[in-house]
């Protein structure tokens, strides 16, 4: 866990260092958008460090689309018994 945290911190630091030049020239809107994008980074980073997988984007999408898709595939798929 500590190793993952260290790697994540390193990656974030590298990203912020690389973006520092753009950040200085950015307007207020760009900085707000950048800050908003750091929210999912923080959440997903937490999932990564804690070795968790959910709740995540795939589950959000599956909640709505997986069952209807399974039904659709069920219609066009031949059953294994036939």
């Amino acid at each position: 866990m500590l190793a993952k945290l260290a790697i994540l911190a390193l990656v974030c630091a590298a990203m912020l260092k690389f973006d520092s030049a753009c950040w200085k020239q950015a307007d207020r809107r760009a900085r707000i958008v950048y800050g908003i994008l750091m929210v999912p980074v923080a959440y997903l980073g937490f999932l990564y460090v804690a070795n968790l997988y959910s709740p995540n984007l795939d589950e959000l999408i599956d909640l709505v689309f997986l069952e209807p898709a399974k039904r659709l595939v069920g219609i066009i798929q031949i059953s294994s018994s036939s």
Binding site: C22, W23, A30, V33, Y34
Partner: peptide, 10 residues
């Protein structure tokens, strides 16, 4: 360009 790296990290 300013949003490329945060997007990539996501």
């Amino acid at each position: 360009r300013i949003v490329i790296f945060p997007t990539t990290l996501i």
